[in-house]
Write a protein that binds this DNA or RNA. Structure first.
Lengths: 416, 416
DNA sequence: GCACTTTGTTCGGCGCCCGAACAAAGTCTG
DNA sequence: CAGACTTTGTTCGGGCGCCGAACAAAGTGC
C-alpha cells in the first residue's frame, strides 16, 4: 500500500519527467556507478560484459536524469585518459525513522548515507501512539528545515519498528506488539504529509542493513546482527538480503531457552535469553550487586543502563561483572547461531555495544568453548560503531536499496 | 573441477549435438514444462509473458532436443483445443550415491525422481575408503545393468557425504571428517569411470533437496530438514536454495548446547545435542533402561537402533521412553531454530523418522512451550516419508536441479 | 448454422545490442 | 621529439530476439 505509492515529486505534470531508466541495463549501470563512485564508460563495459557503444548510450541517458555526472579524468592505462562518471550523492535525500520502545529518532541522509540532520526525543510510544505520530512528523519536518534544501528531492521515508513485520503487507505492523498502530494509521499519515513512499521494517533487520552498507559488515553477504537494547533481536542477512522467514518473525531470539533451570519468563517458559539480557534485566542485576561491590563507582546511586555502560568502560568491577554475565549468556546463543547458520560475521549493536571489547572478549571466549567446527569458531564477532543512529540510518538505507533496485523511485531531478 | 566437466555423451563428434537451448528463454520454458507436466504453447506464453509466436519458435527447438514432446490435446477453453507439450522424463537418468558412516547406497532415477534401480551395502567407510570407492562404482554399475537402458542417457552422478563440503571447491570433501578421501581421489575416479559430471554435497543438505522436490516440503521455499541417524545434521533451505554459510558448515547442529550440566561431549563442551540424540546414544540409553522395563519386548536382548524403532512403533514402553527423551531434546533445538529462522516447515528425516507420530507428538509439545511467537509455534513439524532412500534420491535430484538450471547438462538425445 | 474464441503458425518490423571504423588523447620507444 | 601503439568514446550499419498483426484450423455457444 504505502510502499507501493509512487513519489509525486515537485508538481511537474509532464507525461515523462525524463528518460526514466526503467530497463535492466540502465539499472545495472546505475548500481555499478554508485558502488565504484568514479568509473569510466570503458570500465563499465568490461564489468558488465556489454560493448562500449551500448554503455555509452546508456550513460548518456543516465546523465540526463541528473543521477550521475562526469567528475573528471582518470589515470591513463596506456592510452587516452578515461572520463570518470560518478554518482550524484546529493540528487536525493531520505528520512529514516527509529521508533523505539521509549524514544523516537529521525535522521536525514543523502544517497551515500551521510547524515544531513538528526533529531531524537524520549517518548512513551506504547502508551501514547497519537503523540508518537505527531512527534515523528514534527522531527521529520525539523530535519528537513535544518537541511534547508529543495524538498522535492525527498525520495522516501523508512521506518523501523520494534516488532516483527508481516512480509505480506510490510506497511501493517503486527497489532500484537503495537496494538495502537493498527491498520492504516501512522504510515498512511506519513505518506500523506510528506507525499513520498513509506517503507517499514523491523528494527533489528534495519540495523543489519545499516551494518551491511556502512558499518562492520560492508561486503559481507551472510552475517547476523544482534541488537541488545530494551530487548534482544536479530537481523539475519543471507545472500545480501534480509531473511524474514515464512511469517516475518525470523530473528525473534529473545525467547531462545538457554537454561532449563533459569528464572521464569513472561512467555511462560524458563531461562529465556530475555530473562538475562536486556536493559531492564541488566539494570536490575547491577542494583542487586551494589551491596557486594561497595567500592564500585555505582555504589550509592540508582544506576541506569547508560551509567552501567560508562562504568564498564571505566573498568568498574561491578559493571564489568554485569557485562561479563551478559556476554556469557549472549555467547550461548551466538554459538548456536554459528553452528546453525555459519555466518561470515556477527555484529553486535544496540546500546550494550558501547561496551566494545569489554563485551566482545568474554563473549568470544564463551563462543569458542561451544563451537566444534573450527571455521565456525573463526567467524569474527565485532561490535558496531554506528552508535545510536544505526537503526534510523538503516531505515533510510532501506529506501536507498529499494531505489537502486528500482530507479523509478529516484526523483526526476535536473530534467534539462 | 569434476562438477565443471561437460558430459561426453555417446561419441557423437558433431560440432553441435543439437540446437542446444542455451538461451534464457528456452531455459525458462523447459523448466515450466517440467513443472506443469502438460501445458500448451498458449499457456506457456501467458505464464512467461512472451508472445505466442516467440514461444512457438522456442518450443519447436526444444522438441528437436527430445527433452519435450507433444503429448496430446487438452481441454478447450472456448475455442480450438490446445496441443499439450510435456517433459520426457525418460530422456535422461541420474545416479545418486549416499555415503553414510557405515553404509553405501546407490539409486538410479529418471528425470521425475522415479526409482529405476536401488542397491545398498554395509561398509566401514571411514576405515576402508579404498573399498568404499570400489563399492560405489560397483553398485553404480549394478544399477545401470538392472535398468538395462541406453547408457549414453546417464547425465551425472550426485554424491552425499556425511560431512561439510567447502562451497568454494564442492568436489573436495573436508579432510577433517573423511581424511582418507583427500584431494582428487574418489570423485575424479567416479568421473573417469562413468564419464559424466559428478556433484558432491552434505547428506543433510541433499536430504532437504529430496524433501523439497518429492517429499514433505514440496512447494515450500523456507524450511529446515533435520536428519537424525548416526549423527544429527540440518539442511537449511532458504528461498528454495540450500544455505551453506560462509565456510560451508551451516547446519552442523550436533554440538549446539542444550544443557550446561549435561554429559561431556567429544567436542570438549557439555550437554551438546549429540550427547543425547544419535544412533549410538539412543542404543546406549535403551540398554541402560533394560532393567527398569522388565516387561519390554526388548528385555533380554541386545537391541540395535532398528529394534528400538520397531519396538516404539509397537508401543513398547521402554522404546517409547527413549523416543520421548530424544524428542524433548530435539524439541529444544527445533524451538531455537523456529525462533531464529521462522521456517515454513520442519521436516524430520534419518532413521529415527521411522517413529513417526510417536516422535513428532512429544516433539511438538516440547516446541510449543518454548516458542513465544504464535506464528512460529504454528509452523508445522512433520516426519519424512521418503524412507532410507531420501539422501540418495536427494543426491540424484541435485544433478537434476543443476541440469534444469543449465540445460547443457542434458544429453543431446534424439538429435533427429 | 452462424458468430465468436482460442490455438498455433507465418511474416514484417522494431529495438537492443554488437562489431567495425574512426577521431581524440594518451604512453612508450628509438 | 617524431612516429608507432593503446585506450577511450562516439557513430553507424546490421544481426537477432521478440512482438503484433493477420490468418487458417478447430473449437464452443446461442
Amino acid at each position: 500500500m504505502a510502499s507501493d505509492s509512487r513519489p509525486r515529486s515537485a508538481g511537474d505534470g509532464r507525461p515523462r519527467p525524463a528518460t526514466v531508466p526503467d530497463d535492466e541495463l540502465a539499472r545495472r549501470v546505475l548500481n555499478l556507478v554508485w558502488r565504484r563512485r568514479a568509473v569510466s564508460r570503458a570500465e563499465i563495459a568490461r564489468s558488465t560484459g556489454r560493448s562500449r557503444s551500448t554503455i555509452s548510450e546508456v550513460v548518456g541517458r543516465l546523465l540526463g536524469t541528473g543521477l550521475v555526472a562526469e567528475v573528471g579524468a582518470g589515470e591513463s592505462r596506456g592510452g587516452r585518459r578515461p572520463i570518470l562518471v560518478g554518482f550524484e550523492d546529493e540528487a536525493g535525500v531520505i528520512l529514516g525513522v527509529d521508533v523505539g520502545a521509549t524514544h523516537i529518532s529521525v535522521i536525514l541522509t543523502d544517497l551515500r548515507g551521510n547524515t544531513l540532520a538528526w533529531r531524537e526525543r524520549s517518548h512513551p510510544v506504547r502508551s501514547d501512539p497519537k503523540g508518537a505520530e505527531a512527534l515523528i512528523t514534527g522531527l521529520g519536518e525539523a530535519c528537513l528545515a535544518e537541511w534547508n534544501g529543495d524538498r522535492s528531492r525527498l525520495m522516501g521515508i523508512g521506518v523501523a519498528v520494534p516488532s516483527p513485520v508481516d512480509p505480506g503487507s510490510p506497511d501493517r505492523v503486527l497489532e500484537r506488539v503495537l496494538p495502537a498502530w493498527r491498520g492504516h494509521g501512522v504510515l498512511d499519515r506519513l505518506n500523506s504529509v510528506f507525499r513520498v513512499p513509506v517503507f517499514v521494517d523491523n528494527d533489528a533487520n534495519l540495523g543489519a542493513v545499516a551494518e551491511r552498507w556502512w558499518g562492520e559488515a560492508v561486503g559481507i553477504d551472510d552475517f547476523v546482527y544482534l541488537k541488545v537494547a530494551t530487548g534482544v533481536g536479530a537481523g539475519i542477512m543471507i545472500n545480501g538480503e534480509i531473511h524474514r522467514g515464512a511469517t516475518g518473525v525470523a530473528g525473534e531470539i529473545g525467547h531462545v531457552a538457554i537454561d532449563p533451570n533459569g528464572p521464569e519468563c513472561v512467555c511462560g517458559n524458563r531461562g529465556c535469553l530475555a530473562t538475562f539480557v536486556g536493559t531492564r534485566q541488566l539494570v536490575d542485576r547491577a542494583r542487586s550487586l551494589l551491596n557486594s561491590y561497595p567500592d564500585s563507582i555505582l555504589a550509592g546511586t540508582e544506576p541506569g543502563i547508560r551509567a552501567i555502560e560508562d562504568a564498564a568502560l571505566a573498568d568498574d568491577p561491578l559493571a564489568l561483572q554485569v557485562v561479563n554475565e551478559a556476554a556469557v549468556r549472549l555467547g550461548i546463543v551466538v554459538a548456536g547461531v554459528l553452528n546453525l547458520l555459519n555466518p561470515g560475521s556477527v555484529v553486535l549493536g544496540g546500546s550494550l555495544a558501547r561496551a566494545g571489547d569489554r563485551l566482545i572478549r568474554p563473549l568470544r571466549e564463551a563462543v569458542a568453548t561451544r563451537t566444534l567446527v573450527a571455521s565456525a569458531a573463526a567467524s569474527d564477532i565485532r561490535t558496531s560503531d554506528l552508535g545510536e543512529r544505526a537503526v534510523a540510518l538503516g531505515a533510510a538505507t532501506h529506501v536507498l536499496v529499494a531505489a537502486l533496485a528500482n530507479p523509478r523511485l529516484f526523483p526526476g531531478v535536473i530534467p534539462a
